[in-house]
Amino acid sequence: MENLQDNQFDVWEVFIQSKPGLPHIHAGNVHATDKKMAVQNARDTYTRRGEGTSIWVVPSLNVTASDPDENEMLFDPSNDKMYRHPTFYILPEGAKNI
């Protein structure tokens, strides 16, 4: 964040919401020195065609990503928990609205 040598500013991740009610989705990044500049730059870069109704910007350094090496530990255990899915359950034929 405080590296004065790199004169292309700090990197911010940009999330755009395309319509109220929808989630903010990662669009890419912009470079900026402050929050206001980051929002304006995101607006001028990622919403030129009316793609946006809301913008989030986050300094890239503040984003923590999961480690791909831990993918098995993190994500595989949920694969066999079929009871979380509605199709797991056996219901009598003719049951309606459930």
Partner: peptide, 11 residues
């Protein structure tokens, strides 16, 4: 660019 960065540091 230097000015924008300097301004950030001041803030």
């Amino acid at each position: 660019r230097e000015a924008a960065t300097a301004h950030k540091m001041k803030k």
